[in-house]
Design a protein around this nucleic acid. Sequence first.
RNA 1: GGCCCCAUGGUGUAAUUGGUUAACACAUCACCCUUUCAAGGUGGAGAGUACGGGUUCGAUCCCCGUUGGGGUCACCA
Length: 484
Amino acid sequence: MINETPRVRFAPSPTGYLHVGGLRTALYNYLFAKKNNGKFILRIEDTDQNRFVEGAFENLIETLNWVGLTSDEGPKTGGEFGPYLQSKRLDIYMKHALQLIEEGKAYYAFDTPERLQTLREEQYKNKLQPIYDKLALQLSKKEVEKKLAAGEPFVIRMNIQPGTKVVINDIIRGRVEFDREVIDDQILIKSDGYPTYHLANVVDDHLMKITHVIRGEEWLSSTPKHILLYNFFGWELPEFAHLPLLLNQDKSKLSKRQGDVAVEDYKSKGYFKEALINFVALLGWSAGDDKEFYNIDELIEKFSLERVQKSGAVFNVEKLNWINSEHLKNKPLEELLILLKEELRISDFSENDYSDDYLKRVINSMKERVTFVSEYLVKSDYFFRPPVSYDENIIQKRWDISTPDNLNNLIEEFEKLENPNHSDYEAALKSVAEKLQIGSGKLIHPVRLAVSGVGVGPGIFELLEIVGKDEVIERIKTAINKIR
RNA sequence: GGCCCCAUGGUGUAAUUGGUUAACACAUCACCCUUUCAAGGUGGAGAGUACGGGUUCGAUCCCCGUUGGGGUCACCA
C-alpha cells in the first residue's frame, strides 16, 4: 500500500446541491491527492431511488468544476475503473452479495418493514440494542428457495458473528474500538435490488483501488460494518480518515435551517471560489503557522491529514467575508474589470457604456472598501449615475446657510481648470478656501455630498477626477438647487 | 437511551509531541493616519486551557473520572 500512488475519492449522493461540508471533504481529498501525486476520483452514490433529484448530478459536477476541484476520474471524466455512477453498477453489487451468501457471510431475509418496525419498538422498550434478530437465518435452504421462486421480496443482510472487537485505526482519530454486539446485520441489498451505501462503498472502494477513505465523521460509527465487509471479502483495508464536522453557530451539525449551506448560495452571493476554498480549508486544519491567506497551490503544498483537527468547527460567515475581501484586494485589475462588467451587465446601469479605463479607476478607488464586486454598484453607485438622493444625516452635519455661496465660488474656480487631475482639484479647492477664509473641510464635505450623495467613499479629489469636471460642476449645481 | 467522537478567549486555530507573561487571525473597543469612510498601524478587553482527581520537580500536552457538546443507531447517504 505504501508504494502505491494514493487514490482517494469524493463520493457524494446527488441531493440537489453541493453542501459546504461536502466541499470541505472534497477539498481535503483533492489536496491530499495533489500533495501526494495521487488521483482524485469522483463517484456518485445514487443508490437511493426515492431520493432521485432531476439534474442533481449534473449540478454537483458543475459546482465542483466551478470551485476548481476537478476529478482525475469520474462520471464525466471517465477512467479505467468505471462506471463511476453507482446506479450503473448494480450487477457488480449483486454479484458480490451473492458471493457472500455462498460463503455464509450473508443471507436472504424476507421480513416485512412492519415486523422490523415492531421489533425495534420492542427492543427499544426493553432497552435492548435495536438490531436485527436474525430470524431469517432459521429458514431452511429449501424454504428460502421456495420464497425466492415465488417472487417474494427479499433483502440481503450481512451475517455478523460474535467475536473480537472491531478496531479502526483512523489517521485523524487514532484507535477506535467497537464491540461486535452493537453491529447490526446490515442490509446490503435492498428489496428494490439496489445496494445500500455500506455494500456499494466498500465494493467500489476496493474495485477502484482507493487507498485512503477520507470522509465526514458521521461515517465513523458505521465504519465497523465496512471493515467487516472487507474482512468477509478478504480484501486489504484502505486507510481511514474521519474529518470533523462543520457546525452551526450553536454547534449542531451545519444545517440549512441556520443559514446558507449550499456552495451555490455562496456563489450567487458573490463569494470568490478562492475565498471559499481558503476559508473552508482552515475549518479543521492549519499548517501550524500564522498564515491565513492561501491560494490552492499553497494549500496543496502545505496540506497534511495529520494536522487535521479532531473537533468540529463552527462555520463563521464573518471570517469568510474577511477572507473574501482579502482575495478581492489581491485580484489582478483585469480580472476585477471583467467581474465588474458582468455585474453592470445585469444591473440597472446595463444600458450605459463605460470605458475600461474609467471602470479600472473606479475599481482601484473602491478596492479597499468593498467585500464583493457587487458592492461597487451599491456603495459607489455615484460612479454610474448622479445622486438620486442626499444622505439626510450628512446634510445635517455638513450643509449650512453658507454652503451654496461657498460652492458657487468653488464652481467658478473649477470652471477655469482644464482637464484637471486630483491635485488640480485640490489646489483649486484650497485656494477658494483661503479666499473665503474658511477651513477646506467646509468645502470638501459639501462637495462630496453634492457629487456622491453620501458622506463616505474614496479620497474626494480622486473621486472628482474620476467623475470628471463637467459632471462634477453639473452635480454641484443640482445639489445647490435640491438641498435647500 | 446504547455505542462512538470531541473539549484552548464569542469564532477559527498556535503552542519545539511536559518547561511560554498561553500566541495569531476574525469579530469587538480605543487611539494614530486620512478634514470622509475604508485599508493600514498601535494598543485594550477577552481563555489561567470545561471541571475534579492523579502521574511528574513541573502539565494545555500523559492517565482516570465527571460534566458538557456532537455524531450515530433506516430496505438514506
